[in-house]
Amino acid sequence: MSGPSDRIVPSPPRLDRLTDGDVPFRRGHFLAYAPRDFHRIAYVEWGDAASPHVAICVHGLSRQGRDFDALAYALARIGYRVICPDLPGRGLSGWLRDPELYALPQYASDMAALIAHLGVTGTIDWIGTSLGGLTGMVLAAAQGTPIRRLVINDIGPFLPWAPIRQIGNRLRDAPRLHHNLASGESRLRTVLGDFGPLTDEQWRHIAVHSFVQEPTGGWRPHYDPAIGDAFRPGRVYSVSMWRDWDAIRCPVLLLRGARSDLLLPETADEMMRRGPRTYRVEIPDCGHAPALLDPEQIRVVTDWMGSPQQVERPPAGP
């Protein structure tokens, strides 16, 4: 894998010590609205709260914002204010009363409310993994969008139905309770194997934030099981969002796991031929989706985004 420059980002310190390090770390939340329902949106924030250079990192379908700890730390160290929310039904955010609302329109609405809550009056950079990338595409395609640069991690405007069905099956088949955290981590190492080769420390970091300890004993997944309702048999089909892709005007960094079955090579090729100017990086030894915990993967993102104090560079080409 190669990045757009040879600048080296130092390896981040231990994941379990990031919040005690030299970068400010804060937790926050606000109330967002769904039809007949207010719900809590939680987030973590890194870096100088007064920085005008804002990056928002949004996770995948069954994940949460702490997946971005290492990347957020690296971006905050070069001057960004970084916000990593939990989408509704995940992490520390509230669950929706109506499971039918777990869909892109609600996620986009909640993330627009997040931008308003943060008091952002200028532009933002968006980093989205899988579902977070789709949400970013919707917002970046809108008229008057505040998104000036977009990083999409292993997702595209066309989603084939077969891997979507597999994702849904894994959600529905996930145990509702593990006897201990080690059991939960073991399952994650299996079902999230496409994240790429991770260290024991990285897997433990993922596991710690993927389960909630019940007062009566055991560990349950951090998400509302109803987020899988949209993947019930008979409801899974291929998805096309080319209209959104073609409407995007900001530069895009497209990351693709070399073994990904969700972002097909031909889809990535088509994304390079049409829509926004896009720089593409293939990440070896990964499927769907690279975890963005590896220092080299982090370097690719930080190199492309650059120090926010720099004059903005022209968008990179293929």
Rank of each mutant, 00 (worst) to 15 (best):
R256P: 02
P295L: 06
A247C: 05
L181S: 07
R14M: 06
I41L: 14
D67P: 11
V239K: 12
L75A: 04
G122T: 02
A50F: 00
S2Q: 14
V208F: 04
L18R: 03
E185N: 13
V23G: 10
V9H: 12
R7N: 10
L92I: 01
Q166W: 03
L31Q: 13
P35D: 07
P13N: 05
R243C: 04
A291F: 02
R274F: 08
L253F: 03
Q310R: 15
A55H: 05
R26T: 12
C250M: 10
G193W: 06
L171S: 02
A113F: 02
L18W: 02
E282W: 08
S186I: 01
P10G: 03
T199D: 05
R187I: 11
A289L: 09
Y102D: 11
A103I: 08
P160S: 09
A291M: 03
I78F: 06
A289K: 06
G89E: 04
P314V: 08
W203A: 12
G234E: 03
F211C: 12
M272F: 09
Q202G: 07
C57T: 14
G65L: 09
R277D: 00
I298P: 02
T267C: 15
A76V: 11
P146K: 04
V82F: 02
Q202E: 15
E312C: 10
L92G: 07
L139P: 00
R14T: 00
R280K: 15
I152E: 00
W203Y: 09
V311S: 11
D244M: 09
P265V: 05
T121W: 04
T121N: 13
Y237M: 14
D125R: 15
V23S: 09
T267I: 15
I164G: 08
D303R: 14
L101M: 11
G21H: 11
E45Y: 02
E214V: 11
A32N: 07
V23I: 15
T145K: 09
V236M: 06
C57E: 04
Q310E: 14
S109P: 00
D22Q: 13
R313W: 03
L71Y: 04
A112Y: 01
H117V: 05
D294Q: 15
W219H: 14
A32K: 11
L104F: 08
V151Q: 08
Q310Y: 00
R17I: 13
Q64N: 15
G317Y: 06
W242N: 07
R36G: 09
L262Y: 01
P225S: 03
G136F: 00
F211T: 13
Y237N: 14
R273C: 13
W161G: 06
G21E: 09
R299Q: 13
T199V: 07
D194L: 04
S238F: 00
M137I: 05
L139I: 13
V44Q: 10
